[in-house]
Computed example of a mutant assay.
Amino acid sequence: MHMFVGGYSWAETPARGLSVIGDGGLVRSFTEIPQPFHCTLSPSGHTLYVASNVPEGRIHAVTVSADGTLIERASQPAEGAGTVHTLVHDGHLFATNHDSGEVVVFPLGEDESPGPVCQVIRHTGSGPNSLSQQGPHPHMTLPDPTGSRLLVPDKGTDWLHVYRWDGARLSPHSQVHLGSGHGPRQAVFHPGGRHLYVVNELVSSVTICGYEPASGALWTCGAAATLPEGADGWNAPSAILLSPGGEHLYVANRGHESIAVLEVKDGGAVLEPAGWLRLGEEPLSVMPWDLAWDPAGRLNVANQTAGTVLPLPVDPATGLPELSDAAIKVPDAAFLLFG
């Protein structure tokens, strides 16, 4: 088991380093891919697909050796700008371009290498936030519990899109508007499959959606704040993650520099605040960007400006994480994957 850490830099010099961390700490850094913002593993675990968040977005297929050594095998343009997410589903690779607004589909060969692009879905529209919503900004693709549909939250237009997937192509199924200026960024399904949680980057909230797996019907049914009452100042939630049993939902707050913990109730239909763990007192000092569970049951946080990955023990009774001093230094840490 290794932890793969992607890097992202706001500076003029892009982050270069897909770090591999083993049991003994940092194993090595693979520096060939600029701004490795997100990655996912093939079902075999032998290939890592990396999204490069650069003006001319790219996807990279990287061979993973047993000892964690990475060797790039293939690279292709992602047909757009700012590639921020990759998904392997049903023999295909789906890449999401945040800056230019596309979902791009690549078939995967028997050797797990991506073939030529077979479909490009281009979003249109904008939102009221003049800084963050001048155009479409899809942020991820998420399979529904049946595998026959993919959901795409679009931060730039405030829509959550549902696409049908027939094994070869995507086609529009439905869409739900999550609120003017909300900026939906990431989503996760409740284990029951009938509720979906969408974190809204521009208003610091989580929208609760109802979902009917048989028909793909989607609707909003509630919301919860990611900040405590009375909190002020800039904040932009990033990652959203459920506990393994679905009892708690965790949200990383950039600006408030905290992890919000929401208790999941009523079969997934209700979220109630359980607490917050502050990671830093000064805005932008830590910037928690991603969350992931490790095999030991710890909640790991990628802290971009702090340049650390921080594993946090979690109280099994309350679901609340606790601070630790076990931080691993990783420059510009912005994404985590265990595999």
Rank of each mutant, 00 (worst) to 15 (best):
M1Q: 06
M3E: 03
E12C: 01
L18H: 04
V20W: 00
G24T: 00
G24D: 14
G25S: 00
T31D: 15
Q35E: 15
Q35H: 11
Q35W: 08
S42Y: 06
V50L: 04
S65T: 00
S65W: 00
D67S: 06
G68H: 00
T69N: 02
I71M: 03
A78G: 12
G80H: 03
G82V: 01
V84I: 00
V84R: 02
H85F: 12
G91R: 03
F94Y: 09
T96Y: 04
N97S: 09
H98M: 12
S100W: 09
F106G: 02
E110M: 06
D111I: 03
P116A: 13
V117L: 05
Q119P: 12
T124H: 15
S130I: 14
S132F: 13
P136F: 07
P136Q: 06
T141N: 09
L142C: 09
P145V: 07
R149H: 12
L150S: 04
H161W: 13
G167S: 14
L178G: 03
H182N: 09
P184Y: 04
A187F: 09
V188C: 15
G192K: 01
R194A: 05
H195Q: 11
Y197V: 06
Y197I: 13
N200Q: 14
E201Y: 02
L202S: 02
S205E: 14
V206Y: 10
E212A: 14
G216I: 12
A223F: 04
A225I: 00
T226P: 02
T226W: 07
P228E: 10
A239V: 00
Y250V: 00
H256V: 00
H256E: 08
H256A: 10
S258Y: 03
A260E: 04
V270A: 11
G275A: 13
L277S: 07
G280E: 12
V286Y: 10
P288M: 15
A292D: 05
Q304D: 03
Q304H: 05
T308L: 09
V314A: 02
S324M: 06
D325V: 01
A326E: 15
A326H: 09
K329F: 06
V330R: 03
P331F: 00
A334S: 15
L336N: 13
L336G: 10
G339V: 01
